[in-house]
Design a protein around this nucleic acid. Structure first.
Lengths: 142, 142
DNA sequence: TTTTTACACTACAATATGTAATGGAAGGTG
DNA sequence: CACCTTCCATTACATATTGTAGTGTAAAAA
């Protein structure tokens, strides 16, 4: 029955937003990122397309995201409208920068190796940018 | 008084092992990684150089690491000796591979940009490897 | 045999996250 | 105006993870 077998497995497979947020938090961030500012109710409605969810649950999580400075709340009359502090791009930019820098700092060569392995999957324009950067670096270092 | 000000700040600054482990777990993994297999007592003694710590605390955490398949326990008479399932290099290798792949999958260009930014800090031999890889890729793609 | 050592079992606290009940305030409707 | 609906604040509980440690037991040492 494979019961709790996986309960104790080291989990390093969190992907994307779930690396930074809990599942509900991630969904909410994505909803807010992919549109204009929204009320709790609106977010709830969107979430409900997937699965019923309590209004207050959504509210609590959204307000926690405000506490964490990831969303801003704006009052419009009695209503509150929420929107992300940073765009998804900015956020990802920052996060991936941090991750990449840390990885390079800590594991240097290892990471570069993997990046290299993964480069096959990357598109041509990136390769070109990489090449340029390399040429530039070579100039600098000489 | 700046009391709980930081309590709600989004924390994305976990570094190194603390990205994967709690602080005590990380210390223990590092101890086990940087030497031969050790008993709980030995680990405790090492940890105690920093700060007093209960034997049972160390034991519990170590056994949890066994449950998570990060350590193996070997019985030698009444004693148990613990050692990492993977070397630190293997572990880092895997983790950084996963992280890198995920990052590339999800944010592609963004990450490459940051890698590029960070390349300045990387040593010469890595640059050379990068160059080789690039040349090779260019061949393949043509 | 008594004492010490090492381990198992169990429990508890703090934090993070998801969930939701309760109650109050604001605004619309009859 | 009284009533009802909508939205929000407050509060709480559940679960998982991590750090902490007490108690009991079995085996080794003295």
């Amino acid at each position: 029955m494979n019961l709790t077998i996986n309960k104790f497995h080291f989990d390093s497979d969190k992907v994307g937003l779930n690396r930074f947020f809990g599942p509900l938090e991630a969904k909410i961030m994505d909803i807010l990122w992919s549109g204009s500012e929204k009320s709790i109710k609106e977010v709830q409605h969107i979430l409900e397309k997937e699965k019923a969810i309590n209004f207050n649950t959504v509210m609590t999580v959204m307000n926690r995201l405000v506490d964490k400075n990831l969303l801003v709340k704006r009052s419009e009359g009695r209503k509150s409208l929420y929107s992300p502090v940073k765009t998804k791009e900015e956020f990802m930019q920052e996060q991936s920068k941090k991750l990449t820098e840390n990885l390079l700092d800590e594991f240097g060569g290892l990471v570069v190796n993997h990046m290299l392995d993964s480069l096959d999957k990357v598109d041509q324009s990136l390769l070109e940018r990489l090449e340029q950067k390399l040429t530039q670096l070579k100039k600098e270092k000489s």
